[in-house]
């Protein structure tokens, strides 16, 4: 476990900003407690100061996890957000997509969101923008990227993809063994 280097911070924030933009500030400056990002075995964790300090007592080999995992650095040095970060993404997301109850199951099996399943979408969402996907009852289901801008979505056929699937809460079941 160690703090992120400046280069790592840059890569991480760039990816995070695609979903929550300048709301990253709210993650860093919280009124309740001091929080920080820590890197442990290529994964980035969002931890309170208290837990982080407790974790320093555990050896690197024995420490399994701490705080909330936001994702991991790939071996090529990119950053991948993981589904465990959904709590925070959903809180601060700038662009959102709501899907109809009929399309929920399909999305939770890892499929893209089609126009037919699209309930609502944030106004003026650009193309290829990182978005958080909600059910119509405002339960966050996962996140992805828009395939078309809001403007273009209006003209699409019902079978065309509106939002590319990246991650969904079905992964907690599907990828249980690989996740942590």
């Amino acid at each position: 476990m160690r703090p992120l280097t400046e280069e790592e911070t840059k890569i991480f924030f760039k990816k995070l900003a695609e979903y929550i933009g300048s709301n990253i500030k709210k993650l860093l400056e919280r009124p309740d407690d001091q929080y920080c990002f820590r890197l442990h075995r290529t994964r980035v964790y969002y931890v309170s100061e208290k837990i982080m300090k407790q974790a320093t007592n555990t050896g690197r080999k024995k420490l399994a996890s701490l705080g909330v995992c936001f994702g991991k650095f790939t071996k090529t040095g990119n950053f991948r957000l993981s589904i465990t970060s959904l709590d925070y993404l959903a809180q601060y997301a700038i662009y959102r997509v709501w899907i109809k109850p009929s399309a929920e199951l399909s999305f939770l099996y890892g499929n893209h969101v089609l126009k037919a399943g699209l309930g609502r979408i944030t106004d003026s969402t650009p193309q290829y923008q990182g978005v958080v996907v909600y059910s119509m009852s405002d339960i966050p289901l996962g996140f992805g990227r828009t395939a078309k801008s809001t403007q273009e979505c209006r003209k699409l056929d019902s079978e065309q993809i509106v939002c590319f699937h990246q991650s969904d809460i079905g992964e907690y079941l599907r990828d249980e063994s690989k996740m942590f």
């Binding site: 400046e6 911070t9 840059k10 924030f13 900003a17 500030k25 860093l28 400056e29 990002f37």
Partner: peptide
């Protein structure tokens, strides 16, 4: 945190 905010 300050460094992080700068990067941001």
């Amino acid at each position: 945190t300050k460094n992080h905010l700068d990067v941001l």
